[in-house]
Amino acid sequence: MNATDCLLHMYDEQHDLEDYQSGVPRWCTGCGDSAILAAVQRLCRDEDLRPEKTVFVSGIGCSSRFPHYMKTYGFHGIHGRALPVAEGVKMARPDLTVFVNTGDGDCCSIGAAHWIHAIRYNMNLTVFLHDNQIYGLTKKQASPTSPRGTKSNTTPRGSYLDPINPLTTTLGVANVSFVAQAVDWIPESLFEIVKAAYHHKGFSFVRILQRCPEWLPTSLDPWMQDPNKVQLLHHEDGLQLSAGLSAVYKNQLQHDPSDINRAREISAHEDVVPVGILYRNPNVPCYEDTRQTGVLRTNETIRKGFEAELDKYAA
């Protein structure tokens, strides 16, 4: 195969869903992670992402098993550190498409420092916060996003503190460039939001509210059972709603994703769950671009630079 044939071959190459599927997920029946996996595999297929050029990075927790179920490169690291690992991957290899799967414990508790700084770096990463409001893998402890009063093994009389709101928190950090919220029980909008996040260049943060059928089987029922408690955000620069979705979810709000103050107001609502793109600013520089040296690294470049430094220290 010559170079042109090779390029044509790459151009023609089409991937099926199976090309992104690996193993049988070990999540519980009804787990929200499965809905996210389906949406992401569909995204990969629709965007025809090259499996060898795609990396899923995760931390520790139920949701962090995600990379094992993708037939791409994956990095299942340590608790709380998915973001700095992913940043390192992206900095070294801007040519790779990098996704991050992190849970509410992973991102908002043990890895909270990295979360805040990752927003500020604004590297071109697509980040899914799998937020089921509970620690699942370690068997039911309150997480920082558990609603106050959540009974768990560490809070048998109910959790004591108000939860962190991942949306308002993210929207409060310098250089925030993309914030969206999805819920696992509306696959259509979940997919559209995942897709919009992928297409945003910068740190695309998607909080996905998901059910934990094992430890908090009913906690999201009020929102699932009453379509009016879900507020679909739409805008010509955001998501457009299909007829089917509009018919079910009548609580709709036109929201301009460039309006950060309005985004913060909407995100602060607790009774109604906003679903859609809260904020998008395509003009925030990405750290990996800012840090590009523009120097073509050759052995000769290194030799010259090195010799120039030695000259400075010549005795």
Binding site: V55, V57, L83, P84, V85, G88, V89, K90, M91, A92
Partner: peptide
């Protein structure tokens, strides 16, 4: 920790 994890991510890739 992030400094080490970042280096690890870059080394890995």
């Amino acid at each position: 920790i992030a400094a080490c994890a970042f280096a690890i991510g870059a080394s890995y890739a």
